[in-house]
Design a protein around this nucleic acid. Structure first.
Lengths: 343, 343
DNA sequence: GTGAAAGCGCTAACAT
DNA sequence: ATGTTAGCGCTTTCAC
């Protein structure tokens, strides 16, 4: 039978249990009992109670207590899903850290952390609603469920959303329609006609936009419809899906992958099926993989200028925190094209 | 002239400034002034003061206040450097989250975040020393400076260190010497004799161990010395370094890269120099890249079984937090070999 | 050798 | 329509 422990154990609980004061317990916990000259027996009894009762310190209380009233400290968070690739997040974090370092001072400190949630379950993040964890956050890689949640409640602190448009928040994203359109331009301009668009099964607003714009542009320019192939988030799954597609349409000659991870799998499938890239099939990705220029062949990409995206995000975040901005706004960053050997 | 603002602005500061009570300010900040029926003029004055004085809420205080006394909440952190690849961290985080979900209950919540520091400057992390941020942390990717710092101060909360041996902490790492030895086995066993070991210029304990063990094993088995080539952390830098090495030693026939990112650059340089992999040059990496099996050719890897590493780490962390374990311990995880087309 | 008290910053409940 | 009070959990001073 599990011990039905009621309220969490605090320093007080332990103090009462042992028959000493909270101060004594605190002293032992911070290993200052020597200088306070607590009786070794008391120390031992306290230690034992701490162990038995399963005491876990309350970090919020400690932090409040330890807080130096002369320094401003701000907690920033980057909220992303477990499922999304971390490369962009890490790049963003580095850039955020740089901007933040520039704004730091002896009396102004920032701490930034990455917090993850399961795709679609942003609402379950503890402390999200009551502003008790962050002074400001960047939210990215959300699924439509998360977007719906965000639309329904305006979070009571500074929020910048990346990659989707939510009317109640500041949003930074690739100019809608542009990514897909330019990918189509490259492939159609290279005289490719039997086209494929490869996406994850679970579409975010960004990936859906890229697909839709690509399909529309191809249709407009050639009168033909690209085939839509869906896979998981992994290269293995993409490879499998493309293999299956090649069996049905051996003459396909151009492919747009809405994430680079999928492009990586597609390249693999194409090469193992004996297709040369770009001679037989041209491939375009979006530049969200750290090493897209070391793929074989290096991947042509159509995607946002991430440095610019991050710069806009950080600038908005600080303006929100300082309340220089109060109204939501949408910022679009035009995608850039990086031509490499895959087209 | 910048306003030499003294103490950070609190709710009290604003209250005094406007001539109202702290409660009134708090009400406005949480947008509850309607239900409290504050005078619109007062609300406006408070809002203005908040803006002018640059108020930033103290999250620790809010959290303490908002804290539900019936739930235990524990803050876990994964501490890593900006410079290291995030893939392993994200994998670890997912695994940690899984374990933690299993240990969660209505009255027990965990939150895990990734916090990053600049390599070599772990000591500058705010809140690291006074246990006011985390109940437990996993530390990884440290440089020797960070290790020296850790050795000099025992952090006052649960800590598990990954990839290095520090006598005052619980450590989980690849069995020392094994990774390099097995890489040597594969290459020497494949009759490669002119060998290269490729490392970052800044070595961690793990990468140094792999290099040293490799060099020792090759020397023991062949009587010859592998050439040590160093690069930055990027594939581009690795490619450049290998290109330079090929110019000096065109007949080199085997390569061990102590990180996969470097292996990726090496593969590129080898192929552009007309070397076939594995026929002309065999390549071994360590399995720390998410997509090493989609490299071209897929990369043979010698590295720890990460699932096992993470399982050991999490188990130690919980034992430390619950004080079931109090003494430091070293846990070794044997590396596994994944043979792929690059050898 | 140990306890009592104060207070970090915030907000909900209770007063007016 | 607004102020006062109390207390979240912790640690440090001061008192005995």
């Amino acid at each position: 039978m599990a011990r039905a422990e009621k309220r969490p154990v605090t320093v007080q609980t332990i103090a009462k249990h042992v028959g000493v004061s909270a101060a004594a317990v605190s002293t032992v916990l911070s290993n200052r009992h020597e200088e306070r000259r607590l009786a070794p027996a008391t120390v031992e009894r306290i230690r034992q109670a701490v162990r038995e009762l399963g005491y876990v310190p309350n970090v919020a209380a400690r932090r409040l207590r330890a807080h130096d009233p002369d320094v401003h400290s701000m907690d920033l968070g980057i909220l992303t899903t477990f499922e999304a690739p971390l490369f962009l997040v890490s790049r963003a974090l580095e850039e955020v850290q740089r901007s933040v370092d520039a704004r730091s001072a002896p009396d102004r400190r920032f701490s930034i952390s990455i917090d993850m949630f399961h795709a679609g379950r942003l609402r379950d993040m503890p402390g999200l609603l009551n502003a008790s964890r962050f002074n400001g956050v960047i939210i990215t890689n959300t699924l439509p469920e998360d977007d719906a949640f965000l639309r329904s409640t305006t979070l009571p602190y500074a929020v910048v959303v990346q990659g989707r448009r939510l009317p109640n928040y500041c949003c930074v994203l690739e100019t809608p329609g542009e990514g897909g359109r330019r990918a189509a331009e490259i492939l159609v301009g290279g005289s490719r006609r039997r086209l494929v668009v490869l996406t994850p099964t679970l579409l975010t607003e960004t990936t859906a936009d890229r697909r839709d714009a690509f399909v529309a542009a191809v249709r407009a320019q050639t009168g033909r419809e690209p085939v839509h192939v869906a896979a998981d988030f992994t290269p293995a799954s993409a490879a499998e899906a493309i293999r299956a597609h090649l069996a049905k349409d051996p003459r396909c000659d151009g492919l747009f992958a809405v994430t680079d991870t999928l492009a990586l799998g597609a390249l693999h499938a194409l090469k193992s099926a004996g297709r040369r890239v770009p001679q037989d099939v041209a491939v375009v990705g979006v530049g969200d993989h750290e090493h897209a220029d070391f793929f074989d062949p290096p991947l042509t990409c159509v995607g946002p200028a991430y440095d610019q995206v991050v710069a806009e995000i950080v600038s908005l975040l600080f303006n929100l925190m300082s309340r220089r901005r109060v109204r939501p706004v949408e910022v679009f960053v035009a995608p850039t094209v990086t031509l490499r050997a895959s087209t």
